[in-house]
Simulated assay, not measured.
Amino acid sequence: MSEDHTHVQEFFGSRAADWDRRFPDDGPRFAAGVAATGLRPGDRVLDAGCGTGRALPHLRAAVGPGGTVLGLDLTPQMLTAAAGAAREGAATLLRGDVARLPLGDGSLDAVFAAGLVAHLPDPARDLAELARVVRPGGRLALFHAIGRRALAARQGRELSPSDLRAEHNLRPLLAASGWRLTSYADEDTHFLALAVHEPSA
């Protein structure tokens, strides 16, 4: 396991049991983020870096009983917390790495990823791997239940122009990874970047 993966697992593993209690007001924001993703009944969607699974019930509601919802996370404690919150009923939970997804090419209609980009060891490679498993024309939603400026203030730091989620950084990063950014919102109450998979010719 890489040093980056070890750090991520240690960080989230130690916080998994109390994660939902730390952010009790995020539920409606997750619901709105999923709604904006444009999922349809019967769609196949992956929650990449699903954590405690806060998006999973909303994803299930969007795709209906005929759809497929997968929740993937690197940290076992987060998946345990998701199961403990009864969210495994909304999805199939998988332990895995977004750099090596156990899914076939073009097997999904969409990927929802909350708070994921900042924790990717190799963002270009990992976003390309997400593109691999999404059909052409499928969607990617990069979500956070707090905007960039509000998150920086919460963490006691300045907002950095090198932040991967800044539009001037994210747009070319997505383009180089098989995605075209179609919508970008960065408000205090949420962050949501939507993209479409456009494979290179």
Score class of each variant (00 low, 15 high):
93 L>H: 11
142 L>D: 10
103 L>T: 08
11 F>C: 12
19 W>T: 05
90 A>M: 03
39 L>F: 12
169 N>M: 09
10 E>H: 03
83 A>N: 00
184 Y>I: 02
59 L>R: 03
109 D>T: 15
151 L>I: 13
130 L>K: 00
16 A>R: 02
172 P>A: 01
174 L>G: 04
111 V>I: 06
55 A>D: 15
26 D>P: 10
117 V>I: 15
145 A>H: 15
28 P>K: 10
164 L>W: 13
30 F>S: 14
33 G>H: 03
68 T>K: 07
75 T>R: 03
11 F>A: 14
52 T>Q: 10
194 L>P: 08
182 T>C: 08
82 A>W: 08
196 V>W: 11
60 R>K: 11
162 S>K: 14
102 P>K: 00
99 A>Y: 08
139 R>T: 10
140 L>Q: 05
122 D>S: 05
147 G>Q: 09
77 Q>R: 08
5 H>I: 12
7 H>F: 07
126 D>F: 01
131 A>H: 01
1 M>N: 05
151 L>V: 13
102 P>C: 03
130 L>T: 00
169 N>V: 05
94 L>C: 07
117 V>F: 10
151 L>H: 15
154 R>E: 14
119 H>I: 01
12 F>T: 08
141 A>R: 00
3 E>H: 10
48 A>I: 05
66 G>A: 13
48 A>N: 03
156 G>S: 11
100 R>V: 12
47 D>N: 07
112 F>I: 08
72 L>A: 02
199 P>R: 15
144 H>Q: 13
114 A>R: 00
19 W>M: 03
7 H>V: 09
188 D>I: 08
78 M>C: 03
47 D>S: 07
28 P>A: 07
168 H>I: 01
193 A>T: 04
159 L>G: 14
177 S>I: 03
134 V>P: 02
40 R>F: 04
47 D>Y: 06
73 D>W: 02
143 F>G: 00
106 G>R: 05
18 D>L: 08
168 H>Y: 01
90 A>L: 02
117 V>A: 14
147 G>I: 04
116 L>M: 07
192 L>E: 02
153 A>I: 11
25 D>M: 07
153 A>F: 03
195 A>D: 12
129 E>I: 00
48 A>T: 01
44 R>Y: 14
159 L>I: 13
105 D>P: 12
96 G>F: 02
159 L>S: 15
73 D>M: 12
185 A>E: 13
129 E>K: 00
169 N>L: 09
77 Q>I: 00
20 D>L: 10
11 F>G: 10
111 V>K: 02
120 L>P: 03
158 E>H: 06
20 D>H: 13
197 H>F: 14
60 R>S: 11
193 A>H: 06
195 A>M: 10
125 R>L: 10
144 H>R: 09
165 R>P: 09
36 A>M: 08
14 S>N: 14
126 D>R: 01
70 L>I: 06
127 L>C: 04
185 A>Y: 03
21 R>L: 13
182 T>L: 12
143 F>S: 01
92 T>H: 09
108 L>R: 08
194 L>E: 06
5 H>K: 09
4 D>A: 10
56 L>A: 09
17 A>V: 11
101 L>C: 06
